[in-house]
Design a protein around this nucleic acid. Structure first.
Lengths: 349, 349
DNA sequence: GGCCTTTACTAAAACGTTTAATCTACGCCA
DNA sequence: TGGCGTAGATTAAACGTTTTAGTAAAGGCC
């Protein structure tokens, strides 16, 4: 069957995979015919069943797998997308990526990942690198884009208005309202807030909607009780630092609404170190509902973002845009938050 | 300067990037010359400085970026590697990936990510998909490989002995010894253990080394106090379930050594729900030192794996193997654990 | 003036596909 | 006999690079 092992072969060194051409030679056919058949091209119907079978069997026998670089070069699409996140090693991005992964794999795409750590040069550079690799589209997570890109882009928690960009966002008005209604219902009036870092793409909307919700619920917002995360660390230390400052303000707040779960954890630590108990003395509400929120002690009360779904939705939307480029580009897709009440909130005393 | 906008261009439609050929045409040169110059090929020294400058300026002016599919097709290397992890959305993989990312980016590589969730079919399938995309090599994290692959592979926490495979491992003997010495020093003798899932690549070594360390420290190991994680969940629930069963065994254990931090968190919850305090009544030691371990309440005492470094080391090793294929393949690279004592361990009472 | 060397490039094949256009042999019909 | 349609393929260009082997012209040397 197979050719006898020969010391000097003309083509196809042992280490490289069979190619369309080598397969064709072996079959005594042209690469064109083999290609037509293996791709179920319409033109292949001119080729008799018997030959088709011969081709398919041979392909299976030698384990032929098409070289996708060559395919992509020809087709001008790679079935590959790029994903940009601030950090890989962090609850928020990780959950979103999880959703992205499932949806992309299901659609037959592979993806590159790049973590830019909010460094402006990398936010410029990575899209270029990925475009060089001919990605068909891009998903950016919690990353604000300056200029439009020459491929379809979907932004998770993005709020930029750029041509060719679809934003997947949370309904922040509802989110703020849920949290404040909950705290108000527990009797809290003096509430501290931690805003996000300036580079975080949700920071602005979140704060705007919080103030609107506070007004709607007739809750005062004391500027002295508004802190802001400063620094690049993806760890709770930033929330810890801000909270220490907020704790110095008198009269003391009875509840705190953090920008995210990570900073809420830091806040809780600061509160405890100040000799106060959570939730008996101070209630804390986080944001995101990252995986570890449920396993804190006590469990963290938080506004849940459907992060996995947001990732999934982003990937599905991108794939849809890639497969049907003639369809209109969705501008904004909004998802609903929910309030997860656990153990860090209690009635004000 | 630029050609006037014309309705019907022969080549290079507006939406596609300039190519080497279009650049050459524009310069009145052959693609060969342009390629030689832009790549600083040795043969380019025959080309006068003036022409070189002309080429480089034109390239910069039109923003020429080489098509890397074409390059890769020609060079038979893509500067791309594949990374396989069990879960993306989890502390362990996330930290390792972080290290991988930094090292790979630094070396000029991009990478695909695939999360297989320990499904055997995906563990088979993903390497194929990535090889189809012509990755130069593969990094697998906490994933056991059945068959050798036709590209260099580095495994983080891998213990398989396959040709072409480099394993990055922890010194498990030291890890076990540190933890048990610590517990023994606190007066614990009755210690419960949680083993990892069967599919976890560290499970076997870890347990072997724990028993050896126990013998060395003259600590008894009561089989009734040995549990094993069962199930696929990457959440603390598995540790919670196992610990509930272990808590039923009398006389009760005074300390527990969990397979990882995630399961330790579940264990702590179970212990508290049984009305016991951590660490006053029961000490708990985790493993890994994932990011959230430090921010538990109290902070989790754990055996730290240098996960970031392991990822970095894996990527560096892979790149080295790719760039110098003639060098011998390192079989095993071992890194040192350390014991991080926080608040979940205390003197036995 | 003849020969050699250097300078400044170019031609063309190759990487592995896809696909529109073309070809050949055959059978059939008028 | 000539013409035509069709089955069953093939050819060749194209995707965008790289790289070896070449070539034409100019300059140097005797």
């Amino acid at each position: 069957m197979a050719e006898k092992a020969s010391r000097a072969r003309p083509r196809a060194p042992a280490d490289s995979r069979p190619t369309l051409r080598s397969l064709a030679v072996q079959l005594g056919l042209s690469p064109a015919s083999v290609s037509l058949v293996l791709n179920h091209a319409p033109a292949a119907k001119a080729i008799p069943k018997s030959t088709q079978d011969r081709i398919r069997h041979a392909a299976a026998a030698v384990g032929y797998r098409p070289n996708s670089l060559a395919k992509s070069l020809r087709h001008r699409r790679t079935l590959t997308v790029g994903v940009m996140v601030p950090e890989i090693s962090e609850g928020y991005s990780a959950l979103v990526m999880s959703g992205i992964e499932d949806a992309l794999m299901h659609a037959g795409y592979l993806y590159f990942v790049a973590g830019h750590r909010h460094r402006a040069d990398l936010i410029e550079e990575y899209p270029r690198l990925m475009l060089d690799r001919a990605v068909d589209g891009l998903i950016v997570v919690d990353t604000s884009l300056r200029a439009p890109l020459p491929v379809p882009v979907v932004a998770v928690s993005g709020h930029d208005d750029l041509p060719g960009l679809t934003n997947i966002v949370l309904d922040h008005a509802h989110a703020a309202s849920y949290a404040l209604a909950h705290l108000k219902g527990l009797g809290h009036r003096r509430i501290a807030y931690i805003k996000g870092q300036r580079f975080s793409s949700d920071t602005a909307v979140r704060w705007t909607t919080i103030r609107e919700a506070a007004r709607a619920h007739r809750l005062p917002v004391d500027n002295a009780l508004v802190g802001q995360l400063a620094g690049e660390s993806p760890l709770p230390d930033l929330g810890y630092a801000v909270t220490q400052r907020l704790l110095a303000v008198r009269p003391r707040f009875t509840a705190l609404f953090a920008f995210n779960d990570i900073s809420a954890l830091g806040a809780i630590r600061a509160i405890r170190e100040a000799g106060l108990r959570v939730p008996e003395d101070v209630s804390v509400v986080g944001f995101d509902d990252i995986a570890s929120a449920a396993y804190q002690n006590p469990g963290l009360t938080t506004v849940r973002q459907p992060l996995y779904e947001m990732g999934q939705r982003a990937a599905d939307t991108l794939v849809a845009r890639l497969e049907r480029p003639d369809q209109p580009v969705p501008q904004t897709i909004s998802l609903e938050p929910s309030l997860i009440v656990r153990g860090t909130t209690a009635r004000a005393r």
